[in-house]
C-alpha cells in the first residue's frame, strides 16, 4: 500500500526535484505526503499540491490522504513536548466562546455533569454574527455554514445532534464485487461515488455513498441501535428548494442491518433520518437523529 518498494518501483527511489511543481508533474504527489503533513511547504506549494490532488485520479488522491493521515498520527505520537499553559487561559477561552452554542445548549452549563444521554441540542436557524473572537475563525465558520446549510434545511433540521459531515473522498471502486444490475452496486461501483459518514444521535453512524451520475445514494447504518418499541427510523430527502421533506422509506430493526438505496437525490440538499411511529409519518414529527448534506 504505502510501503517504499511499492511506491518506488516505477521510478528512481528518492528522486525528488528541487521544486514541488516538478515533483507533481513527474507523478510523485504521494511522495510529498510526508512533507505536506509536516507543513514543510509554503502556502503556494500547499495550494499547488491541493490543486493537483483535486483533479488527480481517486486512487492517487486516496493514497496521498492515507499517507498524510499516517504521517500525522506518527507526528502526534512522536513529538510530544508539553508545557503548562498560563494560568487562567482556559477561563479566557471559555469566556470568549461564541455565544451561539451557549444559547443552543440549554441544560448544559460549566461545572454540571453532562447528562448520561446527552440531550438533542437544537441548532440555531442562523447564527448571530459579529460574535467571533477572531476574524479569520469567524469568517471560516461563516463560509462553512454557508456551504453546509442550504436553504430549506434550516427550519427543519433543528434537532441534529452531532451531525458530522465527513470529508467526502473518493472510494476505491474495486472494493465492491457484485452483480452489476443490482441498484445498490450500481451506486457503489459508480465511477463518481463519494462517501461520507455521519453520527447518529443515540449511537452508531450512517454511511452515505453518493453517486451523482446514478442520481442515487446508498445509506448504510453501522452499529445503530434498534428503534424503540413501536418506532421506526424514517429517511427523508430535504429538497433544495426549501419545500417539505419527502419520505424515502422506513427502517425497522431488521432493515437496519441492510444498506438502502435512495434514488432521485439530485434535487435534494440533504438526507435526514428521524424516529417515527411504526408505519411512518407523512412529515417528520421529531428532530433528526442524523443528517447528511448531499452537496452534489
Amino acid at each position: 500500500m504505502t510501503d517504499m518498494n511499492a511506491q518506488n518501483n516505477s521510478r528512481v527511489p528518492g528522486g525528488f526535484a528541487t521544486d514541488i511543481a516538478t515533483d507533481l508533474a513527474s507523478g510523485r504527489a504521494a511522495d510529498l505526503a510526508e512533507v505536506y503533513a509536516l507543513n514543510a511547504v509554503d502556502d503556494a506549494e500547499r495550494a499547488a499540491i491541493e490543486a493537483y490532488l483535486a483533479s488527480a485520479p481517486a486512487a492517487e488522491h486516496a493514497a496521498f490522504d492515507d499517507r498524510v493521515r499516517q504521517a500525522r498520527e506518527t507526528l502526534a505520537t512522536s513529538f510530544t513536548a508539553e508545557e503548562e499553559p498560563p494560568a487562567g487561559l482556559l477561563d479566557r477561552i471559555m469566556a470568549s466562546l461564541p455565544a451561539r452554542d451557549l444559547a443552543a445548549a440549554p441544560g448544559v452549563h460549566p461545572g454540571q455533569e453532562p447528562a448520561a444521554v446527552p440531550p438533542v441540542v437544537a441548532r440555531p436557524v442562523r447564527e448571530p454574527s459579529g460574535l467571533s473572537v477572531t476574524d479569520d475563525l469567524g469568517a471560516a465558520r461563516k463560509r462553512r455554514d454557508e456551504r453546509r446549510r442550504p436553504q430549506g434545511m434550516r427550519n427543519w433540521l433543528v434537532g441534529v445532534a452531532a451531525a458530522a459531515i465527513i470529508a467526502l473522498g473518493g472510494v476505491g471502486v474495486g472494493a465492491y464485487v457484485a452483480n452489476q444490475n443490482d441498484p445498490l452496486n450500481q451506486v457503489l461501483q459508480a465511477g463518481d461515488v463519494k462517501q461520507a459518514t455521519v453520527n447518529v444521535a443515540g449511537g452508531g453512524t450512517a454511511t452515505v455513498s453518493l453517486s451523482t451520475s446514478r442520481d442515487a445514494i446508498v445509506v448504510k447504518m453501522n452499529d445503530v441501535p434498534a428503534p424503540p418499541p413501536g418506532k421506526v427510523y424514517q429517511m427523508w430527502l430535504i429538497p433544495k428548494d426549501g419545500s417539505a421533506p419527502v419520505s424515502q422509506g422506513l427502517m425497522d430493526a431488521e432493515a437496519l442491518s441492510k444498506p438502502a438505496v435512495v434514488k432521485g437525490v439530485s434535487t435534494a440538499a440533504a438526507l435526514g433520518i428521524t424516529v417515527e411511529p411504526t408505519g411512518g409519518s407523512a412529515s417528520p414529527t421529531t428532530p433528526a437523529v442524523a443528517e447528511a448534506p448531499l452537496g452534489a
Binding site: 452554542d101 445548549a105 448544559v108 460549566p110 454540571q112
Partner: peptide, 26 residues
C-alpha cells in the same frame, strides 16, 4: 468531541485539561 459538537462546555473544559499542555508545549 462528540459532546463538544453539541455545545457541551464541561466536555470542552475536560478536553482542554487533557490536551492543553500538548498544544501549548508545541
Amino acid at each position: 468531541l462528540e459532546q463538544i459538537a453539541r455545545g457541551d462546555q464541561t466536555a470542552f473544559a475536560e478536553f482542554y485539561e487533557l490536551t492543553s499542555r500538548r498544544v501549548f508545549g508545541m
